[in-house]
Simulated scan of single mutants.
Amino acid sequence: MSSILIVTDAWKPQINGVVGSLERLAKELKQMGIRVEFLTPLSFKSVPMPSYGEIRLSLTLPHRVRHFIEDFDCDHLHIATEGPLGLMARQVAKRDGRVFTTSYHTRFPEYLQARYPVPLSFSYSWLRWFHNSGQGCMVATNTLEIELRARGFENLMRWSRGVDHKRFRPLKTDRLSPLSGPTFLYVGRVAVEKNIEAFLKLDLPGTKIIVGGGPQLEELQKAYPEAVFTGPKEGDELVEYYANADVFVFPSLTDTFGNVLLEAIACGTPVAAFPVMGPIDVIGNSGAGVLNKDLQIAALEALEVSREHCRDVALRYTWRASAEQFLANADQAYNPALPVGFRQGPSSASTSVGNHLNG
């Protein structure tokens, strides 16, 4: 495997876990000698998605997507999202008999149902049709794999995530010193599916901080004027918020992984979350946070968690291990007899899957 084309409807200027994971995957694969190309909405005219203008929907046709795929001339095709580009790339690959893999990043049925009265059974039926058509569907966690298998998804492959330990680090500054403590932080999209109001409604001492932008930002700012809304942050400024908060609160009930969980604990900040998919897999019984059906109890108990231990748990996740796992899955799509990618997480150390640079 010497070259990979990744088709994704989620791309810059969006700031989210999907975009961040794909960018870091490409960086690691290139360092391993793999050529990585992207086909994104930036190559086409696009329109904003209704109710979520940050997401752009590409306006194109399958024959144009085929032209791009042929021009890239990559060894493997990976379709990362189920949007217009992903659908057309799947159509082209099926017609041309091309091997491809997909990945399941977002619990789209739950996100859609949070906005419109669309039955989960309908959305999952459509997603099952999409993902079962390839040679493998990559999922981030054991909990997600179990759920999707129960819903009839096939050929599931594990592809975990990593965290940049050099960037996300205990960076102590006076960034939050003007605020009354303790400080409870949320970082991520400000959207209804993130369940942020469950955090904002908590009766907690100190200050609640929301870092990020999204379609619900203005509504929540008006409803909760006592909270601090910073808008999106990047670079060391973002790291300062993570590293100087007392607790990172993750109220989402619908995330498949939660890259922000790793970013928080890499900065030494313990996590408070519900015991659901994502937090169960990333935090679990690692001791890097507290999971509780009562988020207020979780947030208060997390104040007692060792910050040094949080950092130690985060060090078990690396982007190199994630990239090697992705590459092993791509290899297996062509040779099902190969072992599936190794697993990394709070209960097991990362291990090498060997050299996948053979053509």
Rank of each mutant, 00 (worst) to 15 (best):
K166A: 10
V260T: 15
V247G: 07
F248W: 09
C267I: 07
F184D: 08
Y224H: 14
E193M: 09
E237R: 13
R167A: 10
V239A: 00
N285F: 03
V228H: 06
D203R: 14
L253E: 13
D281P: 09
V260E: 03
T183P: 02
K233N: 04
T256L: 15
Q216Y: 15
I196N: 08
K222W: 01
V239R: 01
G206P: 04
E219S: 15
A273N: 12
G231M: 13
E263L: 06
E197C: 00
F184Q: 14
K166R: 12
K233I: 00
A273I: 03
A245W: 00
A198T: 04
K172Q: 14
F229M: 03
H165S: 13
F257W: 14
L253F: 13
P279F: 07
R175W: 00
P270F: 06
D255H: 05
G235L: 01
R189H: 09
T230W: 04
F257S: 08
K222Y: 05
D164K: 06
S180G: 10
L200I: 05
V187Q: 06
I265V: 10
E219C: 04
M277G: 07
G212D: 00
E197V: 05
V228E: 01
L171M: 13
A198K: 15
V190L: 09
N285P: 06
R175L: 07
G206T: 02
G181N: 07
T173D: 03
G181H: 15
E240M: 08
P251M: 11
I209H: 05
V282G: 05
L202S: 12
I265M: 14
T183N: 08
P205D: 09
P279V: 01
V282D: 06
D236N: 13
A266S: 15
D236I: 01
E240A: 15
I209Q: 02
T230M: 02
F184S: 11
L261R: 10
G212T: 10
G206A: 08
P232H: 11
S180P: 03
Y224L: 10
G258S: 14
D236F: 00
F199T: 03
G212C: 08
T256F: 13
L185Y: 01
G278H: 04
E219H: 15
E240N: 02
V239G: 00
F184H: 12
I196Y: 04
N259I: 11
K166N: 14
G278F: 05
L262M: 13
E226V: 00
G284Q: 11
A198E: 13
V282L: 07
L220V: 11
T230E: 03
A272C: 13
L262Q: 06
L253C: 03
P182H: 10
G231I: 04
E234P: 00
E234A: 11
S252R: 10
L202T: 06
N244W: 04
L185E: 02
P215F: 08
K194C: 04
P225E: 08
Y224R: 12
P205I: 05
G214F: 08
F184T: 09
K201A: 11
Y186A: 10
A266F: 05
Y224C: 07
P275T: 06
